[in-house]
Design a protein around this nucleic acid. Structure first.
Length: 510
RNA sequence: GCCAGAGUAGCUCAGUGGUAGAGCAGAGGACUCAUAAGCCUUUGGUCGGCGGUUCAAAUCCGCCCUCUGGCACCA
């Protein structure tokens, strides 16, 4: 059976993990977990892009081998995945043999077919920056002094015949509305394709760049950037082997808007087309986190790295925040103030406190055993109706990649449980001698517990650790599927609840 | 300049033709199981501006203004 295959972009080894990396992995993970819960087999890939000039330069500056630098990045980025509870099935590094093998076979194939040719490239070269400069690098018509001496040189390189596929690509994009999400990005791609595109330079002379995969047909060159990095998506899932068709074509390439045009929307589809490989079903393009509050934080000398928040507030809180605040495709603001607001009001006050009071009341009034549902009156009917509405709407939002709205719905339901608790007021019922009040009390406790179970189960793609933990507190086991788990049920009846716990402690410092 | 996105309550944002919404922040209140949490009530907006279509527009069309991002061998 074909798996649901989803990827993040691979991160460049020459840099430390930051909020953007973390967000992309979380977004992709939410989708992967959502699919798994729906019962689909999933293959989730992430990894590292390790070759290239900057890695070579940084390694040289530090007096170490490039691979040593990459090994460090490998530790850092895998560590990030772990801290974020990312459920990736594989992690590829472009220095791995399985990857190089595929890169070489594609290059050789295209070369043999005449789709790669050698030509001269003339341009302005900065020795200091070790790169060709573009017209746009000029400031006031001159090369900035930072580039040092700039000279016009001619260099032989290999080119891939990109331009001959331009018309075909335009047709493909126009015919497949689902190819680029969100839809408005499609226009950006078509806009780009209105102008003639050039063939793509895919090599660098080895004397200038040694840290790369040598061209199989010319040892004096290494391949550069795209024919290396993009190929990870197929090399990781066994291109050329039988198992390849279990994953390919990929369902989603999750990428940032900065690498949509031209790499993922132009180079990659054409590379695949030229090689006779099926195209990705969809590119999921997310926006960026803006740091409008950054200046303020710096001026007060109170700089907090977003990733530090994980240590302080936990993985689930971090995942919740970035998923709740980001409308996928748009940009969002990140600030500590906003984070604390979400943490305090949504997680600590609404959800954490709900769990706390539920467990506490069960302990006080029912010996921590979930009682049976004894009555069904207006308050119960209302809450169940709200659940039904919440589930339907949230699932629709999940399917439509509207995770911020799904969470909005789920937390409206959580507030609904709090409202229900006030309506029933078990602490008052507990003082009554009336058997009917006792029945209402027991019903209220069971209802609150079931409501909590449903809410955290529905939020599982976003907060997987919380779901596991809360379900354990409620006495019901882990689940790896939503099958039968999202219906209002009596599954908790008779279960023993844990003693009260604080899931999201309020921040101690002011 | 071209293209795209955004412009709705103090803040963050929902809302694609039918009497303006939520959360947070602010104000008041009743309660007490709970992380001084939760619940109820409430203050607050000419939905960027001007025209147009329509019985009816935040929502469709046109023009304009402001902010953000992109505009090729750079990851």
């Amino acid at each position: 059976m074909k798996k649901f295959y989803i990827t993040t972009a691979i991160d460049y080894a020459n840099g430390a993990p930051h909020l953007g990396h973390a967000y992309e992995k979380i977004l992709t993970d939410v989708i992967a977990r959502h699919r798994r819960l729906k019962g689909e087999p999933v293959h989730f890939l992430t990894g590292l892009d390790e070759h290239g000039q900057k890695v070579q330069q940084t390694a040289r500056a530090r007096g170490i081998e490039p691979i040593e630098l990459c090994d460090e990045a490998d530790v850092a980025f895998r560590g990030l995945c772990e801290r974020l509870s990312i459920s990736n099935d594989d992690f590829i590094r472009t220095t791995e043999e399985r990857h190089k093998k595929v890169v070489c076979s594609l290059l050789q194939q295209l070369y043999d077919e005449g789709q790669i040719y050698k030509a001269d490239y003339t341009g302005y070269y900065s020795t200091r920056a070790e790169q060709f400069l573009q017209e746009k690098d000029k400031v006031n018509g001159e090369w900035p002094s930072g580039f040092g001496e700039v000279v016009e040189i001619t260099e032989s390189n290999y080119f891939f015949k990109l331009s001959q596929y331009q018309e075909w690509l335009i047709g493909h994009v126009q015919a497949h509305d689902e190819f680029i999400f969100p839809r408005f990005r499609q226009k950006q791609v078509l806009e780009f394709l209105k102008e003639p595109i050039n063939d793509l330079c895919i090599s660098r002379p080895r004397e200038r760049l040694s840290w790369g995969i040598p061209l199989p047909f010319d040892e004096d060159y290494v391949t550069y950037v795209w024919f290396d990095a993009l190929v990870n998506y197929i090399s990781a899932v066994g291109y050329g082997e039988e198992r390849f068709k279990e994953c390919w074509p990929v369902d989603f390439h999750v990428i940032g808007k900065d690498i949509l045009v031209p790499p993922h929307a132009v180079y990659w589809p054409i590379m695949l087309k030229a090689c006779g490989i099926e195209l990705p079903k969809s590119l999921l393009v997310h926006g960026w986190w803006l740091r409008s509050g950054e200046k303020m934080a710096k001026s007060t000398g109170n700089v907090v790295s977003p990733l530090d928040l994980i240590d302080q507030f936990g993985t689930d809180a971090f995942r919740y925040f970035v998923t709740r605040e980001m409308n996928v495709g748009q940009d969002s603001d990140f600030s500590i103030e906003l984070f604390l607001s979400r943490y305090n009001s949504d997680l600590a006050n609404d959800l954490g406190n709900l769990v706390s009071r539920t467990l506490n009341m069960a302990s006080r009034y029912a010996g921590s055993t979930v009682p049976a549902f004894a009555v069904e009156e207006e308050p119960e009917k209302e809450l169940r109706a709200l659940w039904k509405e919440t589930r339907g709407a949230a699932l629709e939002c999940y399917d439509g990649i509207q995770f911020h709205l799904a969470l909005d719905r789920i937390f409206t339901f959580i507030r609904g449980i709090n409202r229900y608790a006030e309506t029933r007021a078990p602490w008052k019922l507990a003082k009554s001698e009336d058997p009917e009040d006792r029945a209402r009390l027991e019903t209220a406790l069971a209802t609150m517990a079931e409501g909590v179970r449903l809410a955290v189960t529905l939020a599982a793609p976003v907060m997987p650790d919380l779901e596991t933990r809360v379900r354990a507190l409620l006495g019901c086991g882990e689940t790896d599927t939503w099958e039968g788990e999202l219906n209002w049920s009596e599954t908790l009846v008779g279960k023993t609840l844990s003693a009260p716990v604080i899931l999201f402690p309020r921040p101690t410092s002011e």
